[in-house]
Design a protein around this nucleic acid. Structure first.
Lengths: 226, 226
DNA sequence: CGAAGTGGTGAATAAACTTTGAATAATTCA
DNA sequence: TGAATTATTCAAAGTTTATTCACCACTTCG
């Protein structure tokens, strides 16, 4: 997502981003930026500081409140910026205008590499594994292109597990992250959802699986890397 | 992890990092850096470009091959650097010497905020020894990359022992730390678990072993240091 | 309203792991 | 060397944890 009041700059960045294979959306003021952010759920934000309606700092702060999405600040040359307090505030990088488009793209690439899981494809906004694709944008799970019906909870569960492949999550953590509340009484809720997912994904691929870690929890296990 | 051939610089950075509450390790050449990297599994690396034995670029490239760990490059003022190709190569940020310590800390903080899991627990590190890796994040024990099945108690036992290599623990201590309660009556519980671990790890390496300290307890013994 | 889809529960069953006790082996020390 | 102490091993019994199932409650939507 590109936020800058100079439409030309937006245009330029958008073109370059698309040339790199990214999806790009541009908005021209701070308030629209926040709105778009919620709707569009970008993987990264390029954010000018001088903006109508709400300045870049405020926008950055608002974004930080609800998301860890990386933010690159664009600053006009000569603009006095306290880099330290800015970084401290949640921005991930600075670029001074006028900039080298090539440099911006390199920085975006560098940040995304670190930020997103290897299996995430920012072009389609989906997590991809052998024969399986998990797309948060449209809440869709596909196996070799065929849609698999997955109710919300099931979808969120597999999405969460698959965003951190190989990492074990306890049931507690999953309940908190996905169900979003402190869970009372014990129950086999998570297990049942795991079971239902397993049924649906049975025999699809042997490169990944929903694995039980006995006495601990579950993980989305993936064999090969790269 | 701080890598710089000027010990003073290392010292300075280390002091500041520790003031911020981080653990810091310093090494002074590229080869040691890679070695330390495997052992220490840092959360972030500060890496000078000019280094003895192997330069910063090469070190960065090697690190990238096996990990997404963030890397900040330190470049001497006037050093000619192609920022773009550098970022593209896997570095996450640049800092030009002489630097503001405050700025470095802010950047580290910014990167870690994004990089580390929600609840930053420094325990999510892997213990690595010759051919053996013990990874608490995925609850996985691997020997030369191959997973070894280990039930919870066995895993926790070897993890605990291996977190303090060469230190002897009595059965009582182990029972308390791992089983988590005062243990009454005598039993060979610990012994049995040790036995099963030994079976699984038999002949894997001669650089370490689960050693009985007669009349006292057990230790995870490692030959070489560093 | 009623059918279909979704989410959660408790109980039965199954699987995996841990502990125990006893037999055996190794080590220490007098 | 041999008695005493400590460690190892084994398999069976015991325990804990996971899976599954059937069912009920709740929501959604025609």
């Amino acid at each position: 997502m590109i936020v800058d009041d100079e439409k030309n700059i937006c245009e330029l960045l958008k073109l370059y981003a698309e040339k790199e294979g990214y999806n790009a959306q541009a908005v021209y003021d701070g308030v629209s930026a926040l709105k778009m952010f919620d709707e569009y759920q970008p993987d990264i934000v390029l954010l000018d500081i001088m903006l109508p309606l709400m300045d870049g700092w405020q926008v950055c702060r608002e974004i930080r409140k609800k998301s860890g999405c990386p933010v690159i600040m664009l600053t006009a040359k000569g603009e006095v910026v306290d880099k330290v307090s800015g970084l401290d505030m949640g921005a991930d990088d600075y670029i001074v205008k006028p900039f080298e488009t090539k440099e911006i793209m390199a920085r975006i690439k560098a940040i995304l590499r670190r930020t997103l899981p290897d299996s995430y494809d920012s072009k389609t906004k989906a997590l991809n594994f052998d024969k399986l694709s998990i797309n948060l944008t449209n809440y869709e799970l596909t196996v070799e292109g065929n849609k698999i019906d997955t109710p919300p909870k099931e979808f969120e569960l597999i999405y969460y597990l698959a965003s951190n492949p190989n990492k074990v999550f306890t049931r507690d953590v999953l309940l908190n992250k996905i169900w979003g509340y402190e869970y009372f009484g014990d129950s086999r809720t998570v297990d049942v959802h795991i079971k239902r997912l397993r049924e649906k994904l049975e025999g699809v691929s042997d490169e990944w699986r929903l694995k039980t870690v006995w006495g601990v929890g579950y993980k989305f296990e993936v064999d090969k890397q790269l």
